[in-house]
Design a protein around this nucleic acid. Structure first.
Lengths: 239, 239
DNA sequence: GAATGCAATCTTGTATGCAAGATTGCCTAA
DNA sequence: TTAGGCAATCTTGCATACAAGATTGCATTC
C-alpha cells in the first residue's frame, strides 16, 4: 500500500479539511478524530495527522491529548486583529505602488472594477472571489513576496467571515464603487488619498461583517430544530 | 516504547534543528536524512518528520522526494523582503503607540536603552538579544497579537544574518543611540519623527548586514582548508 | 583511463502497531 | 430515578514496517 500517489496525500487532505471548515461543513466546536478523517478520505492516519498539525499551527484547529480534535470557536478579537493587519499590509503596498516610477501594473483590475453598472457581477460567491483577488493583486503588484505570503495567510483566515459582506446587494455596489475610486487614486499616484480610501474600505467591510456575525450568533443561540445537523457534530460551538 | 514523554518530542526536535541552523551547525546547502536526525536525537522518524515539515513550511529547509533534506541557501532578495516587512510592521506599531491616550508601556525599554554609555552592554551576543527584545517589545506594546506573531516569525527568519550587525563596536553604539532617540520620540508621541527614525534605523542595519554578508561570501568563495567541517556536510552551499 | 550498465543500498511517503491514559456507557446501589 | 464506580473502548503520540523509486558504487567494456 505504500508509495506516493501522484501528489502528496497530506497536501490533498489539508486542502480538503480547510475547505470543509471554510464551507461550514466543519463548524466551530465540532469534534472529530484522526481515524474518522482517515476513513472518510480513505488514507491512513499519517497524512491526516500532517494536515491536522498544519491547520493547528495556522490557528484553525485544536488538539486535546488523547481526546480528539476540535474546530476552534470564532474569536472576534482575532478577526479584528487580522483585519487591522490586513490594513497595514495593503496600505503599505499601495504606498509602494504610488511610488513606482514606471507604469503601475493594475490593468487587469481596471478591466474588472472600472466598468459600467450593467457589467458588474451580482453573485455573492463570485464577487467574494473577485474581491479577494482585487486585494491580493494590489499586494502582489507591490512586489514583496513575503508581504504577499503573509497577506495570503491573513486572507485565508478571515475568508470564512469576510464572505458574509457580499450577501446584500448594496454592499456589492459599494464594493464596486470603492474599488473603482481606490484604483483611480492609485493610478494617479495619490498615495495619501488612496491609503485613506483603502483604510476606510476595509474598516467598513469589517464593520458590516461584524454586524452580520452578531446577528448570526443571535440566531444560533436560539436554534431551530430543523436546522440541526447532528451527524459529525458532537459538541455545539459556544462560539 | 510508545507513550508520550513529559513534553512533545516533535516540538523539542523542531527547536533543536532551528537552533542548529541559527548557530551555523547546519549550513546552507547541507544535506541530511530523517534517519540521521532520528539517530542523533534518539527519537523515531515520526517526530523528526513533523519538525522538518514545519521548518520546510517556514522556508528554512527543502525536501527532495526520496533523496533527502537540505538547508536552503541564503536568499538575499528574501532577506530584503523580510526587512521591508519588518519596517512596515514596526512602523505601524509605533504609529499606534503614539496614538495611545493612556501611558505608553515602554518603561522596561527606557531602563535598558536610555542609560549612560558606561552602563551599555558591549557583548555582541547580548546586544543582539536586547535588540531583538527592543523591537519585539515595540510591536507587542501596540497590542495586536497577530502582528506580534508575524513580526516574531520575521525575526526568526532574519536572525541568522541580523546578528552580524553587532560584531563591530561602533554599530553597537549606533544602536544604543538610535534606540534612545526613537524611544524619546515615541514617548513624546511624535509619530512622524519616530517612524522616520525607525525606518532609517532598520534600513541602516540592513545595509550593514548586507556589507558584512557580501564580505563573508567573498571569503567563502576562496575557502581555506583549515575551516572545512566535512562531517555532515555532503554538499557545499552555493549560497 | 573514461564511460556505461546494473545491482545493492538509501530515502522518503504512507501504513500500521503499540502504550498510556482519557472517555464513555453500563451496572449497581440507594 | 439518580448517583457513582468500573471496565471496555477510544484516542493520540511515538515507533516501526513496507513499497516505490532515487542514488551510488563497482564491475565491465571500449
Amino acid at each position: 500500500m505504500g508509495g506516493p500517489r501522484a501528489t502528496q496525500l497530506a497536501e490533498k487532505v489539508y486542502e480538503r479539511i480547510k475547505a470543509e471548515i471554510a464551507d461550514f461543513r466543519l463548524l466551530p466546536g465540532d469534534r472529530f478524530t484522526e481515524t474518522e478523517l482517515a476513513e472518510r478520505y480513505e488514507v491512513s492516519r499519517t497524512p491526516v495527522r500532517d494536515a491536522l498539525y498544519r491547520l493547528k499551527h495556522e490557528g484553525f484547529l485544536d488538539v486535546a491529548f488523547r481526546s480528539g480534535w476540535s474546530v476552534l470557536p470564532w474569536d472576534f478579537a482575532r478577526f479584528d486583529a487580522l483585519y487591522e493587519l490586513r490594513i497595514v499590509l495593503e496600505c503599505a503596498a499601495v504606498e509602494r505602488l504610488c511610488q513606482f516610477t514606471g507604469p503601475i501594473p493594475l490593468d487587469s483590475l481596471r478591466a474588472i472594477w472600472l466598468v459600467p453598472a450593467s457589467e458588474q457581477k451580482t453573485n455573492p460567491v463570485e464577487v467574494a472571489k473577485l474581491d479577494e483577488a482585487f486585494h491580493r493583486t494590489l499586494v502582489e503588484a507591490a512586489g514583496n513576496p513575503e508581504m504577499t505570503r503573509i497577506h495570503a495567510e491573513v486572507t485565508e483566515k478571515i475568508r470564512i467571515i469576510r464572505r458574509l459582506d457580499f450577501l446584500k446587494k448594496p454592499r456589492i455596489s459599494a464594493t464596486y464603487e470603492e474599488h473603482g475610486k481606490l484604483l483611480r487614486q492609485i493610478l494617479r499616484r495619490r498615495a495619501d488619498q488612496a491609503v485613506m480610501l483603502l483604510r476606510a474600505h476595509i474598516t467598513q467591510s469589517r464593520q458590516e461583517v461584524h454586524k452580520i456575525t452578531l446577528h448570526m450568533l443571535h440566531e444560533a443561540r436560539a436554534p431551530r430544530a430543523d436546522t440541526e445537523r447532528p451527524e459529525r457534530r458532537r459538541n455545539r460551538a459556544t462560539v
